[in-house]
């Protein structure tokens, strides 16, 4: 394998990072601290714009006429979260929601805000995912009509949509809240064990 060693050594001599000075301890400390605290800070920054977009999107979702499942998202933004099919699907024990893969800048979630805006909130486990249609079996309803199952049309994945991996995954528990049939994004829905999410729900409901 000396051939390999030679080749590797030769490649290494061209390493552009060879002369890169190691980060100073202060720099490392800053980066570490930033990562651990940025969860909130990052979301706190672009508040105004996001709220306007989301509010706009939600208003649009509420006021628009009938809703086939697919359409989603206000025309000019990617921040509107999702749209329900309020009609027949909302009957009895099954609730239908949609979750778009919208990207949004968010501010830190607050229990009060969650309490004010959510009209439906539940905890559930993903049973099946078929053709972008996610079915969750409900284990607990925090707010809203009791339901056994919730179906969500999942259209994309971003970390803003769902805390955790950014999308629904089979067998995982989720805490999900919705308003007017739209899943609340920006840290209000996500994997049940996402940091702080359960506390948020306990405080809000």
């Amino acid at each position: 394998m000396t051939d390999d060693d030679d080749l590797r050594a030769r490649l290494r001599r061209t390493d552009p990072a060879a002369s890169l000075e190691p980060a100073s301890p202060a720099q490392v400390a800053r980066l570490v601290e930033e990562a651990m605290s940025r969860n909130t800070r990052r979301w706190a920054l672009p508040v105004a714009a996001a709220l306007v977009l989301i509010a706009g999107g939600a208003a649009w979702a509420v006021t628009r006429p009938s809703t086939p499942i697919n359409p989603v998202a206000a025309p000019t933004t990617t921040a509107s979260a999702a749209v329900v099919s309020p009609g027949p699907a909302a009957s009895a024990a099954v609730v239908s929601l949609t979750a778009s893969g919208a990207q949004a800048k968010c501010r830190a979630p607050e229990p009060q805000r969650l309490a004010e805006s959510a009209d439906f909130a539940f905890e559930g486990t993903v049973e099946t995912i078929e053709n972008g249609q996610v079915t969750l079996s409900v284990t607990r309803v925090f707010r809203g009509r009791p339901a056994d199952r919730v179906t969500v049309a999942q259209e994309g994945e971003t970390s803003e949509t769902m805390l955790g991996s950014g999308k629904f995954e089979k067998g995982t528990d989720y805490l999900v809240s919705a308003a007017d049939g739209s899943i609340l994004i920006c840290g209000y829905s996500g994997e049940a064990d996402a940091i702080g999410l359960r506390e948020l729900y306990e405080k809000a409901f």
Binding site: L31, V32, A35, M36, R38, N39, R42
Partner: peptide, 8 residues
Amino acid sequence: SETLLICW
């Protein structure tokens, strides 16, 4: 920064 955030 982004990478560290995700690692965290």
